[in-house]
Write a protein that binds this DNA or RNA. Structure first.
Lengths: 171, 171
DNA sequence: CTGTAATGATTGACACCTAAAATAACTCAG
DNA sequence: CTGAGTTATTTTAGGTGTCAATCATTACAG
């Protein structure tokens, strides 16, 4: 960012300084699409991360974990969380440790299977999440604001098709 | 994965077990789009990571770094790499250390400014990258195979618009 | 010149993330 | 009952990522 002092990010990007814009002209369409998909996701994700950190001193993985639990008042096991968050079990252990330390979730031993932990939101957790989620949705609406309803629907459809194909191809 | 033993990942996803499919019906479109975007990117990214690791014992960040350098025979400074890879400088230091240790890149001190390192691919690096990049493009083509040319063009256009808006909004 | 600010890169502390090994508890055929 | 296999979770080791502090070098006003 140093040597571009004073120039906005927008201008820098428009000038072709990011990964995706610079993809060679002879790169194929599929590759270009992948790079653009990655760029879009990274831009939005890092923005959300930054705001979550600045506004609430919170992180995206913890927010994601709490979002899963908020939908399930009965709680979720570590495995279920792992599957839903699309991360490994070991990772869920670490994130749950953190959020538990903050008092937003509790691990409860399942009555009929002592291997299983049922993780659920505490009252403080539910309250904190509600507050963050409300703002979070505004951020996203804002970030998606460049598209009208028809375009959003179209994107949802195309990405839905892409997702199905990827999931189906993946061994 | 436990309670779904024997059911394919595809079936499980189709049944609605992942983060995005389960988004509540009352969630707004913008949020749904964001989750779907994130899911698509994560699915593809983790697939590429896995293949890169299995096929070449290599990682995505290192591949990305070499991809940037491959386009620039004169090499790039650490700052330039940082900007293009959209990660922090400290991170570039670490990744460069690794790839340098593997003999695929070298740091050369710039003649006129002793603060600057110019990183460039070695001959071994260029060769290794060419081999990986060729396969990589096939993987991507494969993953995008569910979409025809028109759909890819449409996605490129819509995501391009989204990207511009995000970049423009983000201060 | 000279001191002060700016710049390029590295370091250290910490959070994430994965794969693979380890641990503990459950299941069920024999 | 028993022991082999399965399942749920944690642990370990190592790469990736951020931010803030640091160090060396360069630029530049006075």
């Amino acid at each position: 960012m140093a040597q571009m002092k004073g120039i906005t990010v927008a201008a820098a990007q428009a000038a072709g300084s990011d990964r995706e814009t610079r993809a060679c002209a002879d790169d194929h369409q599929a590759l270009r699409l992948w790079l653009r998909l990655l760029t879009c996701t990274n831009l939005i994700e890092s923005d959300v991360r930054r705001r979550l950190s600045q506004r609430f001193s919170f992180t995206l993985p913890r927010f994601d974990l709490m979002a899963q639990l908020d939908r399930c008042p009965d709680g979720l096991t570590m495995s279920e969380l792992s599957k839903r968050m699309m991360v490994t079990g070991g990772n869920v252990t670490g994130i749950t440790d953190q959020v538990e330390r903050e008092g937003f979730v509790v691990r409860e031993v399942a009555p009929n299977d002592r291997r299983v932990f049922r993780v659920r939101l505490t009252e403080a957790g539910r309250k904190a999440f509600a507050e963050m989620a409300a703002e979070h949705e505004l951020w996203i609406k804002d970030l998606m604001g460049g598209l009208d309803d028809a375009e959003i629907t179209q994107l949802l459809d195309l990405l839905g098709r892409l997702k199905s194909h990827v999931v189906a191809t993946k061994p």
